[in-house]
Design a protein around this nucleic acid. Structure first.
Lengths: 147, 147
DNA sequence: AATCAGTCTACTATATCGGTATAGTAGATG
DNA sequence: CATCTACTATACCGATATAGTAGACTGATT
């Protein structure tokens, strides 16, 4: 399940993508417009800044703005930044590989074999879907993944 | 991410699937063989029993056994029983539909539109993969999903 | 310097996860 | 029918994650 963090992040980024010049927009304005607790949103934006998704400007006339065009920001990147790896088990994660403590032999693990397919399916969709697609989907209510 | 509960459940069920007549096997023996804490495993098996995946026999010579053939038990069913719905957001779940509290309008939610694709992809794989496939994958180290 | 606006640290409440303890109930067998 | 055996049920516990709050600090304008 996606956390609220990830959903808030997507809504805030979508807001910026719909803003002229992609910002800058004040944290407070973003929080009000998207109904996100301000201090919570602060932390979310800070992390997206660190990851190079956003940039910030301090002082009067400042705020947050997109650091890249919406079609250059993937949904996968946002979800990974907020909720961690997409993979259902660490041993099939591309971005955060790790062993399962309880696994006696990774090469003969049926769970791993099946979950590898699941990871590939999820990543296949979310690495292709961009912030631009998200904004488009908000308008149409639809999104169709193309292999 | 899958919880340990779900992985333990799959290992225990796989063990039963590999046992003559699919059981009965004592909780204690399952726990030892699959290196699962016994009391924790009890709770897992109890839930699988309630869901009709397993049946139990009390008294001497009793234990747990599969209630259906391994190819009639899907991985999706196991994961849902242990970790809840497969969908990344409740508003696209088939088995546990619910609104997102923060969502102002479900019909124009881009997150929902994209996550619908993700849910379908996950369910597409895990509703087709069975306990029999899991056992097979343990032997070969491979599993290939067929659309 | 005053002010504005993002940054950082610390703290809280609640829930979930992984696991344990204790008590109880149902069935098989001598 | 007593009594094992073995599953069932409830309550509890510590660690971690989630969601959110408070306040001080740093940097940029004007």
């Amino acid at each position: 399940m996606l956390t609220r963090r990830a959903k808030y992040a997507m809504r805030a980024l979508s807001h910026l993508a719909r803003t002229p010049n992609y910002g800058p927009v004040l944290i407070a304005d973003l929080a009000t417009a998207e109904r996100i607790p301000k201090k919570f949103l602060e932390r979310i934006l800070l992390e997206l800044n660190r990851r190079g998704v956003l940039q910030s400007r301090k002082g009067r006339g400042g705020g947050y703005l997109l650091n890249r065009a919406p079609d250059q920001i993937t949904i996968a990147e946002i979800v990974r930044a907020m909720d961690g790896p997409l993979a259902p088990v660490p041993c099939v994660s591309q971005t955060a590989y790790g062993h399962c403590v309880e696994c006696p032999d990774e090469r003969h693990c049926g769970i791993r074999a099946i979950m590898q397919e699941v990871r590939d399916a999820i990543a296949g969709i979310l690495d292709k879907a961009t912030l631009a697609d998200l904004v488009q989907a908000e308008r149409t209510g639809r999104y169709r993944h193309r292999a």
